[in-house]
Design a protein around this nucleic acid. Structure first.
Length: 610
DNA sequence: ACACGGCGC
DNA sequence: TATCCGCGCCGTGTA
């Protein structure tokens, strides 16, 4: 809310971006020479590269635009790329010359593939926008220009076309690309000038300068490194799965008495609820639900649901991972280069895509096997470092709850500890079931508990769930106070914050209906916990990355999965890396409780020990 | 483009 | 009366 007003206020004070804009294309050798002379003298400028692909590891450079003054920009058409880059390299690599960009990790990555290390990044408008309001749907330049500058940018489709007729940037008339690119750089500079002030005003400058911007370099290196994939193993697995699936399909058609598309919930509903007359357990917006929960409940009534569950599990694994991963391997590097997005989640976590490596299965044996395909080069090991119970430790820190702090100080199994407290038994007498229930309660607390939600999680009625919650709060009273405080904070300030001042607006806590308000309250409770954990691991990543460079280690940081960091490590560096990573992760931030990290290693992401 | 279903932390 | 306990990405079908 507050943010929108700010945006409108600024927008109204800005006139049309293009009104007096002067964009120039540099084509000739002579012009380029003059341009370089000029560029060298600048202490700060925006750059924006034009390429042939949205995927940086596949992209070929087409041109680069520069802007150091609003309304004035230059596009260097790279007819002789290596000649031009030779001149640009010392400027782009000069730490003292400040570089500004929109999603500059992309530019850095592409340039690095041309042998240029982009240094001196001091502003990224995408990240600035993200910190100012992480809940925004999009932090794309066109959306930001429209909202903050009241400027409608030329859609990329106007240059490239759409669908079958879509071409790549190198096919487009240079003058058109030039105008497009110059406008991007110009707009980026205008946004930067606004965002800079706003970051200061909201005390987000430390988070921006000391965490998010340094992280750009880390993520860029991680994406460039990628991870090696055991394609032979996946192809074998695919064949095995294929076999079992075709058997399952035959069985399912047999039991159903007809052939149909098992992947279609609509057709499946027809079979289950009309033809077989099974009871509708749950409904979706569009019809009867056929999800896991439903199929599990129907399993006792009929033979079909069980087969369907197995079919679903297998086909999901096969299509999403086993068959998809090899397709994504880069033809030049022969590795898989995931994108780590820094401006997506509302809480401050990273997200990963193409593929999403943050949801590689781990729960079932079958799913876990996918991790076996993530390997190292010959003589390299995969090393994984996990934060233990990081969100509960952060909850202990934020709430300062005495009981919870003591539990972690004494290095207790926190789920068993909670079980002993809420069930009133000695910790040694806690049964597996009691521990499992306590675990659900602990997670429920982090998510901003409701009796309904917890009841569902525990498979009990909301009334009984409420009793668990009551006894939890009786034993951890400061956690309740923490929750009440966060809700109050969100109501009065309009937002909540993390350990490092990351901010999330929650207007719904006042404006929403009953349901939205309750959801807003859960967000107010969960975001500081989840977001502080994100702050913490980001700091660890930056510090580890720096140390690895200082020590000139050959090891690579390759993946991040929220509370886990994965490395590819030459055997000779294993001991050094184990120590370095553990120390930096545990010491990233000083909390009121100890921070614990467990390190494992092995020849792949599945088979790991110690 | 959207809904569903399903995987992770 | 039925109900989404937090945060994501992706494959598939349907429109």
């Amino acid at each position: 809310m507050e943010f929108k007003n700010f945006a409108r206020e600024i927008a109204s004070s800005n006139s049309d971006v293009h009104k007096e804009a002067c964009y120039k294309t540099i084509r000739s050798q002579a012009d380029f020479k003059d341009f370089i002379k000029e560029l060298k003298r600048k202490s700060e400028f925006v750059l924006d590269i034009e390429t042939t692909s949205e995927q940086p590891m596949k992209a070929a450079l087409v041109g680069i635009s520069f802007c150091w003054k609003e309304g004035e920009a230059y596009y260097v058409a790279l007819s002789n790329i290596s000649e031009a880059l030779k001149e640009l390299k010392p400027i782009l690599e000069d730490e003292k010359i400040k570089k500004i960009g929109q999603n500059i990790k992309y530019d850095k990555l592409v340039l690095s593939n041309y042998g240029i290390e982009l240094r001196g990044i001091t502003h990224d408008t995408m990240i600035a926008s993200y910190l100012l309001n992480p809940s925004r749907m999009s932090h794309g330049l066109d959306d930001l220009a429209f909202e903050y500058l009241d400027h409608k940018m030329t859609p990329i489709s106007e240059l490239l076309g759409t669908g079958q007729k879509r071409v790549t940037m190198d096919m487009v008339d240079v003058e058109k690309v030039s105008m497009y690119s110059c406008a991007d750089s110009d707009v980026t500079l205008r946004l930067k000038n606004m965002f800079e002030k706003e970051l200061l005003k909201k005390e987000l400058d430390l988070l921006f300068n000391d965490i998010e911007l340094p992280l750009v370099d880390v993520l860029s290196d991680m994406e460039k490194s990628g991870v090696k994939i055991d394609v032979d193993f996946l192809e074998e697995t695919s064949l095995e799965m294929e076999k079992e699936l075709s058997g399952l399909i035959k069985d399912i058609y047999g039991i159903a008495g007809e052939e149909f598309n098992i992947n279609s919930p609509k057709q499946l509903s027809k079979i289950l609820f009309e033809k077989l007359g099974l009871p509708v357990v749950k409904k979706t917006k569009t019809g009867a639900s056929t999800d896991v929960e439903v199929l599990e409940r129907l399993s006792s009534l009929h033979a079909l649901p069980k087969e369907l569950l197995r079919y679903r599990e297998l086909s999901k694994l096969k299509s999403t991972y086993v068959d998809a991963l090899p397709e994504l391997i880069n033809k030049k590097t022969h590795r898989l280069h995931t994108s780590f997005n820094q401006a997506v989640t509302a809480t401050g976590r990273l997200s990963s895509s193409n593929p999403n490596i943050q949801n590689i299965p781990v729960k079932t044996e079958e799913g876990r096997k996918i991790r076996k395909a993530f390997i190292g080069e010959k003589d390299n090991l995969i090393m994984s470092a996990d934060y233990s119970q990081i969100e509960l430790r952060i909850l202990a820190h934020l709430s300062k709850d005495r009981e919870l702090i003591i539990a972690f100080e004494k290095d207790r199994d926190v789920h068993s500890h909670t079980a002993s407290l809420i069930f009133g038994v000695e910790e040694k007498d806690v049964t597996a079931e009691m521990r499992a229930n306590a675990k659900t309660v602990n997670f429920g607390i982090i998510y901003g508990i409701s009796a309904f939600g917890l009841g569902k999680g525990l498979g009990i009625d909301p009334g009984s769930a409420q009793q668990f919650i009551d006894s939890y709060f009786e034993r951890y009273p400061s956690v309740r106070v923490y929750m009440e405080d966060k809700i109050e904070e969100a109501r009065s300030a309009g937002y909540v914050t993390t350990l490092f001042n990351r901010r999330r607006y929650i207007p719904e806590i006042k404006t929403g209906g009953m349901r939205e308000q309750q959801q807003a309250e859960r967000i107010a409770i969960n975001t500081p916990v989840q977001g502080s954990a994100a702050d913490l691991i980001k700091i660890a990543m930056i510090n580890i990355h720096r140390k690895m460079k200082e020590k000139k280690l050959k090891s690579l940081m390759i993946l991040q999965v929220h509370d886990e960091l994965v490395f590819e490590v030459p055997k000779a560096e294993l001991d050094k890396m184990k120590k370095l990573v553990k120390e930096e992760m545990e010491g990233a931030v000083k909390l009121l409780v100890p921070v614990k990290v467990s390190v494992q290693y092995g020849k792949n992401w599945l088979e790991m020990e110690e």
